[in-house]
């Protein structure tokens, strides 16, 4: 009998401890300076919203703000899965409807990182949309995350949020220059961006959502190293344009200077600033009225 009581006590402590520790972690997430925490906390108001994976990080917020004179908020994340990116964008727009422009780096369409997707269990309590995506796409993880609240924080996203607990996450940019070795190999290497139907549909839903709210949505393709081959890029663009009815601005070959790249798919800080300037000139990114006047 005494042993049975200890077993019950143990299970009770295990459960209560799990919920209590989960609660403490959630409090820390809420207070974090990480981008998604700020967004869900209500501190993410900006004029321009950037959505993308690591290629979206080419559009470095301070560079965009300098070139446009407008406040900017980035939802980009390394290997960001498309289904989560579009959900985060909608959550953002629900909370901050006064956004002037949403800029989407469209190669996100090909991303579905099964390893990263479960990482967003950390933000499950803040978003019904994230909850339903995870329930649909990673049912097992979703079950575990409901069974154990500590498990919700067993991921890279939580660790990053803790890293940025007390400092802003505006140090996400590529500061290296591509190595000579990679430059030499570039002509022999290639990539083909895939367009899974479900992800194209995610983009279409985001486009419809923005149209319904009169929000300016811009689709772009960020720069790619000049001698690196991208196969069937036209097909990629056409498929997205046909599904969403929005033009895809192709900047894949807009930068020719090798020193503006970190690797084949990522411009560095210098290249990022160059492309942002080009996008402002092209009108893809808006310009603040006073900036527009002063630049004349």
């Amino acid at each position: 009998m005494k042993k049975a009581i200890w077993v019950v006590v143990f299970l009770g402590i295990l459960f209560v401890g799990d919920r209590f520790i989960g609660y403490i972690f959630q409090q820390q997430i809420t207070k974090s300076q990480f981008r998604y925490s700020r967004m869900y906390r209500g501190e993410g108001q900006a004029d321009i919203l950037i959505v993308g994976n690591s290629r979206g990080l080419n559009f470095y917020q301070p560079s965009v703000e300098k070139a446009t004179g407008l406040t900017t908020f980035s939802l980009c994340y390394y290997s960001m899965p498309c289904e989560i990116a579009t959900v985060l964008a909608k959550d953002y727009l629900d909370r901050y409807p006064k956004v002037k422009t949403v800029l989407v780096e469209t190669t996100i369409v090909e991303m579905s990182d099964d390893k990263l997707l479960p990482g967003f269990t950390t933000y499950m309590p803040y978003s019904e949309r994230i909850d339903s995506v995870l329930r649909l796409k990673t049912k097992e993880t979703w079950n575990y995350a409901n069974f154990s609240h500590i498990y919700r924080f067993n991921n890279e996203v939580f660790q990053r949020a803790m890293y940025y607990r007390n400092k802003l996450d505006n140090d996400w940019y590529f500061d290296h220059t591509i190595t000579q070795d990679l430059i030499d190999q570039a002509p022999h290497r290639s990539v083909e961006f895939k367009t899974p139907d479900s992800h194209v549909q995610d983009l279409k839903q985001l486009a419809d959502y923005c149209k319904a709210r009169n929000i300016n949505l811009q689709f772009v393709i960020a720069p790619i190293f000049p001698t690196y081959t991208v196969k069937k890029l036209d097909v990629f663009k056409q498929k997205i344009e046909a599904a969403t009815g929005i033009t895809v601005h192709d900047y894949s070959k807009a930068i020719l200077d090798y020193s503006s790249f970190t690797d084949y798919l990522h411009a560095n800080l210098k290249g990022g600033a160059e492309i942002v300037d080009t996008m402002v000139k092209d009108g893809v990114l808006p310009r603040a009225p006073q900036t527009a006047v002063s630049s004349r």
Binding site: F10, I13, L14, S148, N154
Partner: peptide
């Protein structure tokens, strides 16, 4: 035991 299980969950 509980601490180890919590660590495993985390």
């Amino acid at each position: 035991f509980a601490s180890v299980l919590w660590l495993i969950a985390l």
